[in-house]
Design a protein around this nucleic acid. Structure first.
Length: 213
DNA sequence: AGGAAGATCCGCT
DNA sequence: GCGGATCTTCCTG
């Protein structure tokens, strides 16, 4: 359960260097008080995307498009994008001051609204740990879609709650998933996850690691 | 203008 | 492991 006195994270939490925000997001809680019910989960896997210099980022090279506009805005907002013709993925915008960086939320450990998550996923047989495993599954289970793009996470119905940090011995790092096209940047260890947590998505495949070289 | 590939997932093999 | 779903953006001609 979520503590009744849990504090909503403020803008200053996200307005820091992106790698630090990524690491600090592990253990924090994402809550969505939607019309069809409340869902919440603890963040157990994230990836950092560092703006113009990062070949894997949507804002690589300083590209500014309608899709990535939210990344150019203030920290603490939610950047939601649509991909592969059918999936949404969501990010916490970091930095601010015109630095278009963000942290992709890849997996949550479900805490509240598990029945609603199963309904949204359209699969009543899913194990708890599978409900928010993977960035698109996470969005689906949490009821996050394109209209949530640009939402201010520091107030409103979709927020981040403070919670105890994950101790260093339980945090693992790896290259990011699915960015083999990014050349040398594909090898950067900018994925952070909670070691041995069953809600964490797959490790990078050997094939992906090879093609990243 | 048209084609290709993507910060993905699922079902089948 | 592989292909299909089929939107957004980029690159080429």
């Amino acid at each position: 359960m979520i503590a009744a006195d849990a504090v909503v994270l403020g803008r200053e939490f996200a307005a820091r260097p992106t790698l630090r925000v990524a690491r600090a997001l592990l253990g924090k809680i994402l809550v969505h008080r939607a019309r069809d019910g409340i869902t919440a989960g603890r963040i157990v896997e994230v990836e950092a995307y560092r703006g113009p210099a990062d070949r894997a980022a949507h804002t690589f090279g300083g590209r500014r498009t309608p899709r990535n506009e939210t990344m150019w805005g203030p920290a603490g907002h939610l950047y939601v994008y649509f991909t592969y013709g059918m999936h949404y993925c969501c990010n916490v915008v970091t930095r601010g001051d015109g630095l278009p960086e963000a942290v992709l939320l890849r997996a949550l450990e479900p805490l509240e609204g598990l029945a609603l998550m199963r309904r949204r996923r359209g699969n009543a047989a899913l194990a708890d740990a599978a409900l928010c495993r993977g960035p698109a599954n996470l969005c689906r289970a949490m009821g996050i879609a394109g209209r949530a793009d640009g939402t201010d996470l520091t107030r409103g119905r979709l927020v981040l709650l403070d919670a105890p940090a994950i101790p260093a011995r339980r945090v693992a790092r790896s290259p990011r998933i699915g960015v083999a096209y990014a050349g040398a940047d594909a090898a950067l260890p900018w994925r952070f996850y909670v070691r041995d947590n069953p809600a964490v998505s797959r490790a990078p495949s050997a094939r992906m690691a090879r093609s990243a070289g």
